[in-house]
Design a protein around this nucleic acid. Structure first.
Lengths: 378, 378
DNA sequence: AGTGGTCCTGCAAAGGTTTGCAGTGAAGTA
DNA sequence: TACTTCACTGCAAACCTTTGCAGGACCACT
């Protein structure tokens, strides 16, 4: 029933190899023949069978994209960008969700290995050594993690965290909480490292709260803990947790930013829509998705041939570029100056500037939405 | 380099056909042989080449999922559920994004047709007749649309819209705006139809505002229009638009729900996080994704065989079940009673009950979060 | 006229798997 | 004992495409 290359060959009176060449190497076929073949193909609605092609070329023109949690709003823009970029290169994308489960990650790489040309491993929770091992099975590009010897796309969340802490210190905060993310997250480690350093050099004390699930609930669950800890500001692992925390604090009668300042990371669309609007570190997720696809596709440029393409496969590992994308601190309404008067935690009736349109911020000019600090590193 | 069925055969001292049968028809092979083969396969890390299998069986064990906009938070839960369900059945999912572009939809179906066993068409914007035509090319399950003769998974958004309008009428609203969604959306038509009917029978006047892009910006852009229109309540095509509208109204000094009530549709996670929390119609997106996969996989149960499987392909079209999933009106804080005093649009300083904890709602008891109306229909 | 080159096309093998058919040996039946 | 049945296994074709190789036609040059 489905129309094959043979039907096209018959219809246009040439051998199937000519039809094949019409598509995969047009310059090798006579222009006249070419147009005839193309016309017949169009006519019959011929589409090459990618499975058959894959069988012989060894390239499937598919890539896998493994995601910790599709429903986490951080990822969809990345998925979207990666899919779009891949499609523009005539690749299709398998998307798979691991539910934040490291063992699911491994299983999925195995399952996908044979039917894709490469895998984008996004925010992996598994160990570096396992990642390296898996990379011998299928070309890998790692997103949101640094693994020596492998192509990686990272966001400079470390610099972002530093900017965030400096911002808080500049507002007078000296006791800052760090709401940690999930175990196994490289991003989490980076944040801890750099935020810790920034706090030290700013004369502030940083207390770690976590690890936590990187969700709204995960942030909300620590509200009570945050309140008791006596910190005046919190940097959260991501926006979801920050928002959850704000919700939780609100329920306890603790106002943001009057009583506690909160900074998120990611700048998901949502962070502009909550009240107060979230001060956060913007990460270029779309660019990360696009770049990762590019990096995957530009390694192994030539198809593995019949013989043993060993030399390519194991010998000279290609460009293992590591890309660090810049982040930006976006200051909105969830951070403000620390109040002089101890901790007015009970002051639900504070008459300080509300979250909307603080008349006089009283701290280094920072128009909401304006970029105050940014980091670049190629 | 990659380990094939031949390697396993050699290692276990049997013919490749026996190895093949060990995986695809275990009951046909001697238990002893089977364990030996399995051991060898495990040992060598053998994974069947799905392209080769697809070539001969005609089934790829892949399905396509075509989405209007991955970044729209309505879809990720659906994607996630579909992917998970598919994987549990040993299928993988291609995800593709159309950017709300009808012609991209058609192109994608064509591109995917040959390398998937079926396509889930989610919230299509193209015409019914085109969908029917495409369904002759590849098995299709349509989500969020009713197409005669095709398997469909719908959410009873009509009943939801009716409940929403009744809720508003119950609060005293008589001039209600309907913030329309994108052209070509079946959901949009359903909402218009049922909301119109509900308004009529409730003695209210429904004015249509739209069509609009189904985004925050699309909702926000109509804030001025809504204000001038004199409506006291608005039902939006989806939560994003509702949230955008609330933002926009807020910027104009119009308070929700004191001056204008707003109802969304979808109950995306975000709708619980904005202030005021959004009254909305909850749609079971996860269940829709799962059901759609099930429906796709249970049609065409037997693989197309060598000969012409014509009779199956064209003759008896299988169960074209149409599934209508129930929706629920979730009442939160963005709706309230209409004020007696005309339209206090200027009253930014209204002292009515704030969005948080209205002391005495003054309208039929509806605890925030409680389900007030629901619809079921199989 | 002979030589060499270019351009185009056909031939056939190869890729990894599934599966109808036939063959083997053993067990069961008459 | 002879025949049938059964459980298992091997053989080889088939799926659709790509591609190295070789052959044919044609042209230009010597």
């Amino acid at each position: 029933m489905p129309v094959t290359i043979r039907d096209v060959a018959r219809a246009s009176g040439v051998h199937i190899s000519t039809v094949s060449r019409t598509f995969s190497a047009p310059h090798l076929v006579n222009p006249e023949t070419r147009v005839r073949v193309l016309a017949c193909a169009e006519d019959l609605g011929y589409r090459p069978n990618r499975a058959a092609r894959a069988l012989i070329t060894g390239r499937t023109h598919n890539i896998g994209l493994i995601i910790a949690d599709i429903a986490n709003p951080f990822f969809p823009p990345l998925i979207k960008a990666a899919e779009s970029q891949a499609r523009s290169r005539d690749y299709h994308v398998f998307v798979a969700d691991t539910n934040e489960d490291p063992s699911a990650e491994e299983e999925l790489v195995h399952a996908l290995a044979k039917q894709v040309d490469g895998v984008l491993l996004c925010s992996p929770r598994m160990s570096n050594s396992l990642i390296e091992q898996l990379s011998r099975e299928v070309p890998l590009v790692v997103i949101n993690r640094q693994v020596a010897g492998l192509p990686c796309v990272m966001m400079d969340v470390g610099q972002g965290a530093r900017s965030a802490v400096e911002h808080l210190v500049g507002l007078g905060h000296r006791r800052i909480g760090l709401l940690g993310g999930p175990r196994g997250s490289w991003t989490n480690r980076e944040i801890r490292r750099t935020a810790g350093a920034a706090a030290r050099s700013g004369g502030a004390e940083l207390t770690l709260i976590g690890p936590n699930p990187p969700t709204v609930a995960g942030g909300g669950a620590q509200a009570e803990h945050v309140r008791r800890s006596g910190v005046t500001a919190v940097l959260a692992y991501n926006d979801l947790m920050a928002i959850g925390l704000i919700e939780g604090l609100d329920a306890l009668g603790v106002r943001v930013p009057q009583d506690v300042s909160v900074v998120g990371i990611d700048d998901i669309a949502l962070s502009r829509l909550t009240r107060p609007k979230l001060t956060t570190v913007a990460t270029p997720t779309g660019a990360a998705g696009r770049s990762a696809v590019d990096m995957l596709l530009q390694q192994d440029p030539e198809a593995p041939r019949r013989g043993n393409g060993r030399s390519t496969a194991t010998g000279d590992r290609r460009t293992t570029a590591q890309l660090m994308l810049q982040t930006e601190l976006v200051i909105r309404d969830s951070t403000g100056p620390v109040l002089r008067s101890g901790r007015p935690r009970t002051g639900a009736a504070t008459d300080g500037p509300g979250p909307h349109g603080p008349a006089d911020p009283g701290y280094p000019a920072a128009t909401p939405g304006e970029v105050v600090a940014s980091s670049a590193k190629e």
